[in-house]
Write a protein that binds this DNA or RNA. Sequence first.
DNA 1: CCAGTAAATGCAATCGATTGCGCTATTATA
DNA 2: TATAATAGCGCAATCGATTGCATTTACTGG
Lengths: 382, 382
Amino acid sequence: MHLLDYFLNIHFKRSQGCFAIFGFLDCPMKKKEKITIHDIAMEVGVTASTVSRALNNHPRISPATKKMVLEAAKAINYKPNRIAAALRHGKSKLIGIIVPTINRNFFSSIVRGIEEYANARDYKVMISQSYDDYKKEVETIDALLDARVDGIMVSLGKNTHSFAHFESVIQKGIPLVFFDRTTDELDVNQVIIDDYSAAYQATNHLIDQGYRHIAHFTSHMKIKIYLERLRGYRQALLDNGIHFDAKMVVESNMQLDGGRNSARFLLDQSFGFDAIFSASDYAIVGALQELKKNKVKIPQEVGLIGFSNEPFTEFTEPALSTVDQKAISIGENTAALFFEMINGDPRPKPRIKKVLDANLIIRTSSSRIPNIQLNTNSTNPE
Amino acid sequence: MHLLDYFLNIHFKRSQGCFAIFGFLDCPMKKKEKITIHDIAMEVGVTASTVSRALNNHPRISPATKKMVLEAAKAINYKPNRIAAALRHGKSKLIGIIVPTINRNFFSSIVRGIEEYANARDYKVMISQSYDDYKKEVETIDALLDARVDGIMVSLGKNTHSFAHFESVIQKGIPLVFFDRTTDELDVNQVIIDDYSAAYQATNHLIDQGYRHIAHFTSHMKIKIYLERLRGYRQALLDNGIHFDAKMVVESNMQLDGGRNSARFLLDQSFGFDAIFSASDYAIVGALQELKKNKVKIPQEVGLIGFSNEPFTEFTEPALSTVDQKAISIGENTAALFFEMINGDPRPKPRIKKVLDANLIIRTSSSRIPNIQLNTNSTNPE
DNA sequence: CCAGTAAATGCAATCGATTGCGCTATTATA
DNA sequence: TATAATAGCGCAATCGATTGCATTTACTGG
């Protein structure tokens, strides 16, 4: 207590010229008098009800009054208290977003899409990360419910194999939209890209480039996107008369190390693969590193395609072909779906599933045949 | 209207078995009866005041009552309404974060640090992105104020050269903490890394490796971090008896293209540079690409070091040396500062500035001399 | 000139939790 | 055995905005 007093004393002495020395930092003199609609009411000479209605452009308030109120509000720098409003009409104007991680171009772009769409409609977003951890995802749902969000948008974590935590959201009647990493075990609106078609195109492109022994990197099969990508890969092979070999499908965590290990595995098994279509950009970079370490020439000996168009795919040597998932568009559509749910008529609707098209981006890692059709400099396949 | 009716009609017909066919989707029958402390009060046979106090572990409530209340709360699945509480005691338990973009490992890691620290203390975070756009930054501040956040943590946008929008935050007495991209024009608590020292180390390392004509990539000088990095670079040169040449400092937007252009510029001017220390990883990747395109050998002919330890620096060929900024730690310290501000005694304190150490990460792009001290294979400097 | 209607605004309750003050018992002190 | 203190809990106001209903004023038609 002595010591404390000592310090406080010093502070007190030094801070007698509060404004001069310490500026505004915690300066007790600067009392934040909150201004409410009542202050406006006083100013204009009406009641708070009228002010509230004027501010909300209620039809029963005369234009003259509205004008006065608006002006007074501006004059005294009024800021509506969203919390009070939220309490009254039960809407927080907050949207909760759960993504595995925002530290991915794909997800942060989706978030941006949602954010812009929502902000334009006077809604704000709360972003949470599940870090692909099931427990954290459950907690996060709870936290968002706690925060009284008006809706929740989710991309599932990789380890999420049970969906009970979403039932409470649904039961509370809170709009729920899934995007990208979804499940069919829940009857919920969703926005996805056409993973099947994208994978089909990617695989087809590899075949066009003369690759015939195409491996596939995938992740846990509970998540639909990986299943779909596998399906597209498989179908493209079959449609081109190429045997589908389950041994060529390698499962991993789809991170850098997973990709490295998977590539190592392929090399060790000597299946004679000449291309990899990976469901993740991270894994394909890992593979690229491992292959280069083993003096495998890309794309001459092995062709590579990733998935997601992460920025670094442009920076590798050679640049990696990949699939652009139109992340911003996914975000916008997800948000749009939410607003449809809260604005549309409340009668039950069948589940909506928006499927967007993806874009194959062809770079060097899969371009064995010169894109110009001259045969001059073309390296012959194999 | 006809068409609409038609659809609605169909829906209606199909949805008579609401639960059976459509499940819970917007099903009007599932009314969410909100449960409040009054319900608990009724259950236990006390008043809402007592329930509230029991829930908040107030000392004046008997242990017996507390137990009953807690049990009843659990039993009827009570969830406190944060909004009501927020309205009452003026605390939203929300923290607003503004970063230029979350789509960067550095920033998203900081956010993670803040988030975890805050969540552990029952606070939630709202993340907003300024996209390095001044106007957006101003709007965002406003939006956070609107949402009645209890505190704001900011990393400045690159184009932010005026700070008036923060004055309103300060005037309202809302704790404000800057991190990483800060300014000294505002008297605000801040958490930064020792950019000067990091830059000094990086430059020194290049010199150790025998590079003598070291260029520097930088950005707008209004942002302190870039100034500090420049200072560190300069001092390291001087301390090693190397002439500091302003011509070797190249300014750009610090993105990929900026880095490319800057490298192009250096090549064109033929200053005879043999290394680049860039204040951004993105710019150094651009430079790397441009140099490789011109058959410049890295690190034999030119050494490179970036800044931030973005994940892709590991993926390039060769892997890039860079500076790890301990992002998570920055986040934690930023959050900690906020809690100090709201918990500490309200008397004015002098501004706090936490300076954390950064870590030089040495990879191939700057390693001309084998790290083992044998002279056998060592390429001689110059 | 009056009933009748529409337009414009006020009154007061409400959303759910918190909290200062006050009222009883119960226990401690003299 | 008083008196004082204290523990345990209820009353009612409060936070700021919203809103159903009531009220007042103005205006129209007959």
